[in-house]
């Protein structure tokens, strides 16, 4: 078996690697190249040096989109993980109908973001009208909380599954030992279960953090950045730069924003990985 893997590994590796190279590495390198150029179509480009990057930081909408995205990411990461973990705890106690609950909580994850955005727009606008509050497109605060509700609804189920898997992997002898030593349920949770599910926490915070930071579909369909870009997140801002302005230079600026955006996402997730990894324990 091992011998044949040694012999045939390229057959297993190459298709995936080719797909990765064509679908990711190549466009990525092109993207970096284009961020230093002015272009309408990618076959006719003019080199402009660092000009595009200078313009990125002069653009006030990019900075405000960054702060909106950052606060959204913090709130949604905390809420999603907290609620998902609590539901996972509740659903690992062996109560009746656990499987049905798990399925129900997971279901929203199967619907695409654009569709969810439009559905929630109708729902939330209905509620806001009823309460006599400004609609989603009129008030950035409503838009913000609308996005939070939408993302929680969509992501909690997925994170819950990961937490359930983590909780089920906590060795029962550890739990037994804890109860023999007289630990109450809070102590067991904090001192035994939590350290043991730390790998799940790493994964889940990583996923929610990067998902929230890169959020596009839901932002586009729920608020489309209204009112006047006040609820616009970074990804949508980049899209807007690329398509909503006339003149060749904006494509390059959009591309430069995308590179800055990539660096931000990588930086933030590396910091997060470093901190949560440190807390992981060996079984």
């Amino acid at each position: 078996m091992e011998k044949s893997i040694k012999k045939y590994w390229p057959i297993f590796l190459l298709p995936t690697f080719a797909a990765f190279a064509i679908g990711f590495i190549w466009p990525f390198l092109w993207g970096i190249y284009l961020s230093f150029h002015k272009f309408i179509t990618v076959s006719k480009t003019t080199f402009v040096g660092l000009n595009n990057y200078v313009k990125v930081f002069q653009d006030a909408t990019f900075v405000s989109a960054f702060w909106f995205t950052a606060s959204f990411t913090i709130v949604s990461t905390v809420l999603i993980n907290l609620i998902a973990f609590m539901i996972a705890l509740a659903l690992t106690r062996g109560i009746r109908g656990t499987n049905i609950f798990r399925t129900v909580f997971f279901l929203p994850n199967l619907i695409g973001g654009i569709v969810l955005g439009y559905i929630w727009q109708i729902l939330l606008n209905g509620i806001l009208t009823h309460l006599g509050l400004p609609l989603l497109a009129l008030d950035a605060r409503n838009g913000f909380w609308g996005l939070i509700i939408l993302m929680c609804w969509q992501q909690i189920g997925y994170m819950m599954i990961i937490y359930i898997a983590g909780l089920q992997n906590v060795p029962s002898d550890l739990l037994e030992a804890a109860s023999i030593d007289g630990a109450n349920s809070t102590q067991t949770l904090l001192q035994v279960k939590l350290p043991m599910v730390m790998p799940s926490i790493t994964i889940c915070t990583f996923l929610t953090l990067t998902n929230s930071f890169k959020l596009f579909d839901q932002n586009l369909s729920l608020t489309n950045g209204e009112p006047a870009k006040a609820s616009q997140m970074l990804a949508l801002n980049i899209y807007d730069t690329f398509y909503a302005r006339s003149g060749a230079q904006w494509k390059g600026i959009g591309q430069a924003k995308a590179v800055v955006f990539f660096l931000l996402v990588v930086g933030i997730s590396l910091v997060q990985l470093y901190f949560t990894r440190r807390k992981e324990v060996q079984q």
Partner: peptide, 15 residues
């Protein structure tokens, strides 16, 4: 001048 101009006027009209 641009799509962006229309969008901003649209937002202001809505508000």
């Amino acid at each position: 001048p641009s799509e962006n101009w229309k969008n901003m006027v649209g937002s202001a009209l809505t508000a």
